[in-house]
């Protein structure tokens, strides 16, 4: 298998000693079929044990290793060296505070995720003994795509709106709200609308579409948000323009 000397330019920040970030260069010999994460691990094992980054599954499902790679938010475990002929610049995800090196703090996302109530809300709960809620394959397909979100927060790093206005709930959390709204077993849309259909929610989105372009698992949050805007507009029309509030 072909080996190649990979040149990495890695963002470093240590709160103990630094007030600003800086870049450090590493050169490691890597197999051509490796991913950027493999190169970082080799740096940590052989050159510099003080380099810090998160990772776990190495198969693009745990969402730990999100970072900026040549300016693009990507999962390091799913970014192949073969596509990067030159120096590879690796930085922590933008729009999040940097704790250290490539490690960012996703607290804001975690708080916003909770606010959209991403769980099944039922007015009439059916006892377990009565078996499953029936759901046809067609009904399943209405939301499954949006249930694929791995919470890697790449979309938050891609979204300029989130970068500028931090109160924006953001793509992944809103897409998960849509996931539950679209689920035939759920009855909680009205509750979620209190957060979703606001200036912090879908109306802050200006449809740049970057979230969907960077999503590693093709959730297409932009689609979810535009659908929610359309549905919210219909709600408004029903409430304000139809006799009896459309009830």
């Amino acid at each position: 298998m072909k080996e190649r000397l990979i040149r990495l330019e890695v963002f470093r920040y240590n709160p103990d000693t630094d007030t600003e970030g800086h870049y450090q260069h590493y050169e490691v010999s890597c197999l051509e079929e490796w991913v950027v994460l493999d190169a970082l691990n080799k740096v940590k094992e052989t050159l510099d044990p003080t380099l810090n980054f998160r990772w776990s599954c190495h198969m693009a499902v745990c969402g730990s290793c999100g970072m900026m790679i040549n300016g693009e938010p990507r999962l390091a475990c799913h970014t192949f060296l073969r596509n990067y002929p030159g120096t590879i610049r690796v930085e922590p995800l933008v729009h999040f505070p940097v704790e250290r090196d490539l490690v960012t703090a996703p607290d804001d996302f975690m708080e916003k995720l909770k606010r959209v109530k991403p769980w099944i809300i039922r007015k009439d709960k059916q006892p377990i003994e009565q078996g499953e809620y029936r759901q046809t394959p067609k009904e399943l397909l209405r939301f499954r795509q949006y249930a694929m979100c791995i919470n890697c927060t790449l979309c938050y790093a891609a979204c300029p709106e989130y970068g500028l206005t931090r109160h924006f709930i953001g793509p992944a959390a809103l897409a998960l709200a849509h996931r539950y709204n679209q689920d035939s077993r759920d009855q909680g849309r009205d509750e979620r609308q209190e957060v979703v259909a606001t200036k912090e929610g879908v109306w802050e989105c200006t449809f740049v579409g970057a979230c969907s372009e960077v999503c590693p698992v093709h959730v297409d949050p932009a689609s979810a948000l535009q659908q929610m805007k359309i549905a919210s507009s219909f709600d408004w029309i029903k409430e304000h323009l139809l006799p009896g509030g459309g009830k």
Partner: peptide, 26 residues
């Protein structure tokens, strides 16, 4: 020493030069 998270501000007027897709959007 302990935590001192580094906040990287987004330039409010020139942010769209950061990426071609933002320029396309603008």
């Amino acid at each position: 020493m302990s935590r001192k998270p580094l906040i990287r501000e987004v330039p409010p007027t020139t942010w769209y030069f950061r990426h071609p897709r933002y320029l396309r959007y603008m």
